[in-house]
């Protein structure tokens, strides 16, 4: 490809976008709208899985030991549980610690509390066990309950199952939304490019008649697709960024219990991803639509 050709192709691309301003604007807007939806879907998915993870990470098995357990035995049981498969962490709350914690919430001192309670500490030793896989909390709890020295376990029976089902659904809905809109975006863009090629079929026909090579015919459309996709992607990432910022601020002040993702790296990746996706869609769309025209 000579320098003359490159100059000509760039000029043609600019001309064609100026000549069909409405089609160019329509293409850009289609890319923008689809990518805005795609961007928000990705953020929704990120939040859904973040929410699911944060709910799940709160799942733990409270293991209460028998009241006659000595501090040495507590240590033995702790290391025993630590060694079990599927256990992520074990934290000990000794009966003395439990009493102090309780005292703090009641506002009294430890000695006066013990006196008040009739000279004995009624709290059992507690081991807080986290499972490495939240889905296996129930199985882990069953295993822990039969260990010697364990009085009883509590892990929010019933509540856990419902929560896990809910988070699973949250993930699936997020994935489905992203998938559906990705497909819709590609279809819309390829229709737009086809219209663009159709409006210039006469020009393409003449180019081919006077002996322009296929790549020469293809380049201006590819560059046009890339440019329009780039503009659409940039607009989309701007809208998604601003919109998400505004939305997350609103949620944080009104629905404080919802964990909102605020990850700058993720935002950068999404912005870059949207721009690249726009360019890829534009280029692939125009390439595919042209293939049929060029074959004749």
């Amino acid at each position: 490809m000579t320098l003359n050709s490159i100059r000509y192709i760039l000029r043609e691309t600019a001309h064609s976008m100026k000549r069909n301003p409405w089609l160019s604007i329509a293409s850009v807007l289609t890319v923008t709208v689809s990518l805005v939806i795609l961007g928000f879907s990705v953020l929704f998915l990120a939040n859904a899985s973040n929410m699911a993870k944060s709910f799940e990470s709160q799942l733990e098995v409270a293991t209460f030991l028998k009241s006659n357990t000595t501090p040495e035995q507590v240590k033995v049981i702790q290391s025993q549980i630590q060694g079990m498969p599927g256990v992520a962490s074990v934290t000990v709350v000794t009966k003395a610690q439990a009493l102090i914690d309780f005292g703090k919430t009641m506002g009294g001192t430890q000695s006066s509390l013990v006196t008040d309670l009739g000279g004995t500490n009624p709290f059992p030793d507690k081991l807080t066990v986290k499972a490495s896989d939240p889905q296996k909390v129930k199985a882990l709890a069953d295993e822990l309950s039969v260990l010697p020295g364990v009085e009883k376990v509590r892990y929010g029976q019933g509540y856990v199952d419902k929560l896990l089902t809910f988070t699973r659904w949250l993930r699936w809905i997020g994935l489905t939304v992203v998938g559906a809109f990705a497909i819709a975006s590609i279809v819309l863009i390829s229709i737009n490019v086809k219209m663009n090629v159709f409006s210039r079929r006469r020009e393409i026909q003449i180019m081919k008649l006077v002996g322009a090579s296929n790549s020469f015919v293809r380049w201006p459309f590819l560059i046009e697709g890339l440019t329009l996709g780039f503009i659409g992607g940039a607009l989309a990432s701007g809208i998604v960024g601003t919109g998400y910022n505004w939305l997350s601020m609103y949620i944080q002040t009104t629905l404080t219990f919802l964990p909102v993702v605020q990850n700058t790296d993720l935002f950068r990746q999404i912005a870059a991803g949207l721009v690249l996706a726009g360019m890829a869609m534009g280029a692939i769309g125009s390439g595919l639509s042209l293939q049929k025209f060029l074959r004749s």
């Binding site: 003359n4 006077v210 322009a212």
Partner: peptide, 9 residues
């Protein structure tokens, strides 16, 4: 046009 599309200066 006929010359431009075949890369003539």
């Amino acid at each position: 046009f006929a010359l431009e599309v075949i890369g003539v200066s």
